[in-house]
């Protein structure tokens, strides 16, 4: 009798659970890329897997805009496999928060900033953006950023983050805040950003010495940022360990090594000057490193910046 009652409750729950309303994989369209422009309303365009069609919609919020897109579809839109989130800088912070809540999307979805007309960008050039971002990252041109990484940076005290940006038909890096684009980095500064974040590997670095231009092959690299107090200042040392070799026949050339060291230090220095000094952004976790080591009592990043001295230590193993 007890068993029957339990079964009755369970069966009742089945009917009440509304499970019949759930849609399975054949009734879902899986969003691949989203482009968002924020104006009076949010305008979006999205591409789905297995289809070349671009779906457009708008709404007061991102989710209502996605809902608007669904109205034109026979299938439910599912964002769990989103690969690229392309957005104008306006309201990007809130949109990232919305996307990450309830684990709606994968935390490793890429973010791309499109200062002008992200909707049109997805329409015209979408389809293989994830592969484009990954290959650019592999070549050390840009640093692919995921939603989780960007949101984490935006929640730090400086409220700034680096993201890949689509500018003049090319991909480079930019610094954003939750609601605006702070500035774009040049090609060299973007490369410097990649070196400062670490994990540059399997790339060729062009170097010039003795009147020759040659390539130095970077097999793998590792970056470590350390901080130590020195009087009133805080010395930030960027240590980059590289494993690679020169393409020159004279593979043990000390000059090649020296030139690599100079080149990378110059790139990093440019990036630091632009991002830290000019844009007042902490894109490398410097503030966290300083606070972990308890090197300062200052709580504001802008007051810490004048205390910083940067030096670069490039170690190359062939």
């Amino acid at each position: 009798m007890k068993t029957k009652k339990i079964i009755a409750v369970l069966l009742l729950s089945v009917t009440l659970s509304g499970c019949s309303g759930s849609s399975d994989v054949r009734n879902k369209a899986f969003i691949k890329e989203i482009g968002v422009d924020y104006g009076e309303t949010q305008e979006i365009s999205l591409r789905t897997f297995g289809s070349d069609e671009v779906i457009k919609g708008n709404g007061k919020t991102l989710l209502s805009a996605v809902g608007d897109c669904e109205n034109t579809q026979s299938k439910n839109l599912f964002s769990g496999h989103l690969e690229v989130f392309a957005s104008s800088p306006a309201n990007i912070g809130n949109n990232l928060l919305t996307l990450l809540s309830n684990n709606r999307i994968s935390p490793s979805c890429y973010v791309l900033c499109v200062p002008e007309n992200a909707v049109s960008f997805i329409d015209k050039e979408g389809g293989k953006l994830a592969e484009l971002i990954r290959s650019s990252g592999r070549n050390g041109i840009i640093l692919p950023r995921t939603i989780s990484g960007v949101l984490n940076d935006l929640l730090e005290s400086d409220r700034k983050a680096s993201v890949p940006v689509q500018k003049d038909g090319r991909l480079t890096m930019a610094v954003i805040s939750p609601n605006e684009l702070i500035g774009t980095l040049s090609e060299d500064e973007s490369k410097g950003l990649c070196w400062l974040h670490g994990n540059v590997k399997d790339v060729y670095l062009p170097i010039e010495y003795d009147g020759n231009t040659t390539d130095f092959y970077i097999r793998k690299s590792n970056t470590k940022i350390t901080a130590e107090r020195s009087g009133d200042k805080i010395n930030i040392t960027v240590e980059i360990k590289i494993n690679g070799n020169s393409d020159d026949s004279n593979k043990n050339s000390a000059k090649a090594v020296e030139e690599v060291s100079k080149t990378i230090s110059a790139l990093c220095s440019k990036t630091i000057a632009k991002t830290v000094t000019v844009m007042k952004a902490d894109l490398f976790g410097i503030e966290r490193t300083i606070k972990s080591a308890r090197l300062t009592n200052e709580t504001e990043w802008e007051k810490i910046i004048p205390l910083l001295n940067f030096s670069y230590n490039i170690k190359i193993a062939q």
Partner: peptide, 26 residues
């Protein structure tokens, strides 16, 4: 039916393609 995010996109497309013409629920 409920957790398609657990499949990677390649597998998911194969599944969706295979199931699209099936007349019954999964």
């Amino acid at each position: 039916v409920h957790h398609p995010e657990m499949l990677n996109s390649t597998l998911l497309l194969i599944l969706a393609d295979a199931e699209k013409n099936a007349p019954f629920s999964i």
